[in-house]
Design a protein around this nucleic acid. Structure first.
Lengths: 327, 327
DNA sequence: CTGTTAGCGCATTCAA
DNA sequence: TTGAATGCGCTAACAG
């Protein structure tokens, strides 16, 4: 492997000079620069990243920890992150925890010494993890979960849920069901649920227990939830608010199996603006969270932090209600 | 930052001894090991990855280059890769080219000095890229495209296409349309098309030009392709084979807009077994390529290569026809 | 079983 | 404007 030493020898200069042209720092005569550049061109020399890192204490790498890359939210966020980071010469080290808390803890430790900053996507916020996170001596940003003392880029899940519920009510629905997820997921589980219930209460609308289901994050779970709601309810709801598109789509598939017409027999809304949502039948009313933008913003703030510039500690992103035919 | 030197001092041993317990190499007395481990525990010390890399010439990082992470194929592959790699202590450095050839070339150069091996997912195989690839002095595996001289994990696109075409024919279809992609994509564009035409010819079935469309990889493109086929054909096909699920789903959405019943008025098949495919109406007949397995296998072969063990230069993976209601 | 030594490839003083 | 010298944190002979 050709090193800076070889280049120096071939160009008849010292390593320092090569280093200077490499980094465009300090004085280098035109002549010397030209010689060095020629040799670099010829040899196809690329400096060793880790040697450089060892010296400068910068890796130009950002660690990204996520529970899965197979759903649209994280993959969109990663796309946004990558776009912004690559503009500044940073790369992404990907750590997929596969929803495993232990792995998340491990990765956090592992990454500390290998990256300049960390992005956490859709982590759960249980104490053990939060404690570890707070102990990380590196710029770190969480996307999708709001927490104290940690930099974060989030959505206003509470008001989204209120707005979407209000929309259902405005459309004439009075009995509305709810398909949520565990409340340990503060953003998706807790805030969206709270938004829903608060809005219902504000309209003096009751929510029967039979209309409420708790799922995990997959389509089939939404399917089963809808089944449970239907089987259990004395008086059935006329609309259901599912906290994610996948859940809504699962619910939709069950409704169709049972011969329900949507939205006449049952209205349905989700959140996420998944690609899926526009190609199911009928197209799903949902909320666009602009995940790529979230990724870009998170990257910007994180880099600002890393470079010692001013940055936003909390950033709440915009959203957009997409009204389609499922309501 | 606490270094190996600090640990050594605190445990009253030399740096070598600390290194030995860290790497479980050479002899270390129980007593010394215990002291060292205690100090490490207390301080939360983690060795510096790049210092280690500089010394050992190993980064324990694999570079993964892909055109997008927002479609299911690459994200599944990455999941498989990650699962297998993490078992062996390797990590993933993600390079998203956003379908940009220049970026791909750049990343290839950049990664060379930062990783122990490279995985290329769904790259196009044009000469300029292939040349660069061949010049990479690192173990490298391509997933999804078969090429000479480069290690690869692929699917048997040709026979998949023949089989799926045969299936349509066996179901009684004689006039079959084809929605493909550019043939510069050898696997998806060229092989699948060839498989289709060869199978049709083997059954002495003609394919009218009007039934054949070339798309880009998105749902809307499939929608437009179906529109074109319908508008252009004197005698319309009774079935359409789309080379990806997304294309098929786009086609399906146009057919529904036009009031077609599927499969009675038009049968439809795709390839990919996307999650989407089972929740559209009717569920799409498709082919499961087991992308996660491809990722795992690619990782295994690549690691074998890196570790100087025997490895498969070419690996062709299994597939599975999933028959649903769109035919 | 353990410590001393050397050097990986680079950036950065400091002197010239 | 340039080069010599130093050291980042670690591993791997080697000698004890």
């Amino acid at each position: 492997m050709v090193t800076i030493k070889d280049i120096a020898a071939m160009a008849n200069v010292s390593r320092s000079t090569v280093s200077r042209v490499l980094n465009n720092s300090g004085y280098v005569s035109e002549e010397a620069r030209k010689r060095v550049e020629e040799v670099i061109e010829q040899t196809g020399y690329v400096p060793s990243g880790y040697a450089k890192s060892l010296r400068t204490k910068q890796t130009k790498v950002i660690g990204v920890i996520l529970p899965t890359i197979q759903t649209e939210t994280p993959s969109r966020v990663v796309t946004g992150l990558g776009r912004e980071l690559s503009k500044h010469g940073y790369q992404i080290l990907l750590a997929n925890t596969d929803h495993d808390k232990e792995k998340e803890l491990e990765y956090l430790d592992l990454l500390v010494r290998q990256v300049d900053g960390i992005v956490l996507i859709a982590t759960n916020t249980e104490p053990e993890i939060m404690e570890k996170i707070k102990s990380i001596p590196l710029p770190l940003v969480m996307i999708g979960q709001e927490t104290e003392k940690v930099m974060c880029v989030t959505y206003d899940d509470y008001h989204v849920a209120r707005e979407i519920t209000a929309f259902l009510i405005q459309k004439g629905h009075r009995r509305i069901g709810f398909i949520g997820v565990d409340e340990t997921d503060r953003a998706v589980g807790y805030m969206r649920k709270k938004g829903f219930f608060d809005e219902m209460e504000a309209h003096h609308l009751a929510v029967e227990e039979a209309w409420v289901e708790k799922c995990v994050f997959d389509i089939y779970s939404g399917h089963e939830a809808m089944k449970n709601i239907l089987n259990r309810s004395i008086q059935q709801p006329t609309a259901v608010f599912a906290v994610t598109d996948r859940l809504a789509i699962g619910a939709m598939s069950y409704l169709k199996e049972q011969g329900f017409e949507i939205p006449q027999d049952m209205a349905l809304v989700g959140i996420g603006a998944s690609e899926l949502s526009q190609y199911v039948d009928p197209p799903l009313t949902t909320v666009d969270y602009k995940n790529e933008t979230a990724g870009e913003e998170a990257a910007k703030q994180l880099l600002a932090h890393i470079q010692g510039q001013e940055f936003q500690k909390k950033l709440v992103l915009d959203y957009r209600l997409i009204i389609r035919d499922s309501v």
